[in-house]
Amino acid sequence: MQDQLSALLAKAAAEFPAIATRPDFEAAKARFVGPNGELTALMKQMGSVPKEQKPVVGKLVNEAKAALQAHLDAALARIESAELSAKLGPPVDPTLPSPDRALGTHHPLTLVREEMTRILRKVGFTVVEGPEVETEYYCFDALNTPADHPARDAQDTFYLPESARFGNVSKKNPSEKYLLRTHTSSVQIRTMLKGEPPIRIVSPGRVYRRDTTDATHSANFHQLECLYVDKNVTVRDLKALLDYIFASLLGKDTKTRFRPHYFGYTEPSFEVDLSATHLPKVNKPWIEIGGCGMVDPIVFKDVGYDPEVWSGYAFGMGLERLAMLLYGIDDIRYFYQNDARFLRQFA
């Protein structure tokens, strides 16, 4: 019996490694350990083993059983692994490009706008929106632009026909004309009329000028405008804001400087220059970046704020111009062509 067991194990050791398929495995399993298998047959002989040898032979049988099971397990594991490999196919080529679409891209104007509003949000400005179709009152009158000012010319400003009706752009006076806003300053007026001071807003948006389109001009472009109204707002506060904005945007060494200028709705008024030596494609020490000033008392009076009590500042700039400076883009028309090779450069 002992010899028979040894022979069985030797046979198993020889046969099992060659088993590669499930049917072969099942057949082998039946042949060795099935109800009609060889081990089963041997175990049936246990009855004829002398009583005193039973413990020894029993132990041998159990060992043989375990050894066979180990062969079975190993064969099954091998088969399962081979089946899985067949299912998975050959290994991937990890260097092939993914056929899935890459992440999309933000337009550079969006990136610049979002960066500016993020910077301004940190010092308490909230972002507001206003209509792009405006009326003469909000775009000009309320901003102290006289009736015969050149900016109001049909030569420079797009107007809508007198018959035009806009359901959701309110007119101050029934006789005024609709136009496409020439600056985002109109949002200042709407915000001040709707709310009450203190006010701290930034309004980015699209504006329109009746201009020839070329490398630096576009019939529509984008501006970003800040307005702060509170008690005791000073010129120095305005300078602090500009220094903060551009240090945040371009690094701590960035400097700004003010040059006196004229805007109808601020007094005093300044143009803002930026130290530009570290900007791409700029070869001037200072570059003009926007306009600003202290809100003119006339503007406050017009929206019903007491200029004796309230003071404030406003700052505005062009977003295309800023984006062109930041990225070194040399033609404004690229922003509006949407060539994907352009769009993908900024993420």
Partner: peptide, 26 residues
């Protein structure tokens, strides 16, 4: 207010001192 502009113009706008933004929460 118009005289404020005249004074700062002749003082030199580039000499306007810098400071920090004071931002009361709104």
């Amino acid at each position: 207010i118009d005289l404020v502009e005249e004074v700062v113009r002749l003082y030199g706008a580039e000499k306007i001192p810098s400071s920090v933004v004071s931002a009361p929460g709104l």
